[in-house]
Simulated assay, not measured.
Amino acid sequence: MKMKAFITAFLSFGSLALAAVPGFDISHYQPSVDFTAAYNSGARFVIIKATEGTSYKDPKFSAHYTGATKAGLIRGGYHFARPGSSSGAAQANYFLANGGGWSGDGITLPGMLDLEGDCAGLSASAMVSWIRDFSNTYHGKTGRYPLLYTNPSWWSSCTGGSNAFVNTNPLVLARYSSSAGTPPGGWPYYTIWQFNDSYKYGGDSDTFNGDITQLKKLAKG
Rank of each mutant, 00 (worst) to 15 (best):
Asn98Lys: 08
Gly88Ala: 07
Asn136Pro: 02
Thr51His: 05
Lys60Ile: 07
Leu173Trp: 08
Asp114Arg: 08
Pro146Trp: 09
Gly99Glu: 00
Lys141Tyr: 08
Gly23Met: 03
Thr207Leu: 12
Ala38Trp: 02
Arg144Tyr: 03
Ile7Tyr: 15
Gly67Phe: 03
Ile192Ala: 03
Asn163Ala: 15
Ala90Trp: 07
Arg75Lys: 11
Val33Ile: 15
Asp133His: 10
Phe80Tyr: 15
Gly181Ile: 05
Leu18Lys: 13
Tyr201Ser: 04
Gly161Gln: 13
Gly14Pro: 09
Pro83Phe: 03
Leu148Pro: 04
Arg144Cys: 04
Ile212Asp: 05
Lys49Asp: 04
Gly72Gln: 03
Ala92Asn: 04
Gln194Arg: 08
Glu116Lys: 02
Ser205Gly: 09
Leu11Ala: 15
Gly161Thr: 12
Trp155His: 07
Ala124Glu: 07
Met112Thr: 11
Gly42Gln: 06
Ala9Ile: 04
Gly84Phe: 08
Trp193Cys: 02
Lys217His: 12
Ala71His: 09
Ser198Ala: 10
Ser12Gly: 14
Arg44Trp: 06
Gly77Ile: 06
Thr213Leu: 10
Lys217Glu: 14
Ser129Val: 09
Thr36Cys: 00
Ala68Lys: 00
Pro188Val: 14
Val172Trp: 12
Asn169Glu: 07
Ala38Pro: 05
Lys2Gly: 11
Pro110Glu: 01
Asp114Ile: 08
Ala20His: 07
Lys2Trp: 06
Asp58Trp: 00
Lys60Met: 13
Phe80Glu: 03
His64Tyr: 00
Trp130Thr: 07
Tyr138Arg: 10
Phe95Ser: 05
Asp197Met: 12
Gly72Ile: 04
Gln214Asp: 15
Ile192Trp: 08
Asp133Tyr: 10
Gly67Trp: 03
Ala71Ile: 11
Gly143His: 06
Glu52Ser: 08
Ser156Gln: 11
Tyr201Trp: 09
Thr69Pro: 00
Gly67Val: 04
Gly161Met: 14
Leu173Ile: 11
Pro110Met: 01
Ser86Asn: 10
Gly104Thr: 12
Gln91Asn: 14
Met3Asp: 09
Asp114Gln: 09
Lys200Thr: 15
Lys200Pro: 01
Tyr29Ser: 12
Gly202Trp: 02
Gly42Arg: 06
Asp58Gln: 01
Phe61Glu: 00
Cys119Gln: 05
Glu116Ile: 00
Leu11Cys: 15
Thr51Trp: 03
Asp197Lys: 13
Ser85Leu: 14
Met3Trp: 12
Pro170Asp: 04
Gln91Arg: 11
Met1Glu: 07
Ser87His: 06
Ser129Tyr: 08
Gly160Asp: 09
Asn40His: 05
Ser178Tyr: 14
Ser198Met: 07
Lys60Tyr: 14
Leu96Ile: 13
Asp204Pro: 00
Thr182Leu: 13
Ala126Cys: 09
Asn40Ser: 06
Phe6Leu: 13
Met112Arg: 03
Val21Asn: 00
Glu116Trp: 01
Ser125Leu: 13
Thr213Val: 15
Phe208Glu: 01
Ala9Cys: 01
Gly101Asp: 07
Gly203Thr: 03
Val46Asn: 01
Tyr176Gly: 11
Leu218Ala: 10
Tyr145His: 08
Leu115Thr: 06
Thr69Arg: 12
Phe6Gln: 12
Ser179Val: 11
Ile74Leu: 14
Gly104Asp: 12
Leu73Arg: 00
Phe10His: 14
Ala68Thr: 05
Ser15Lys: 14
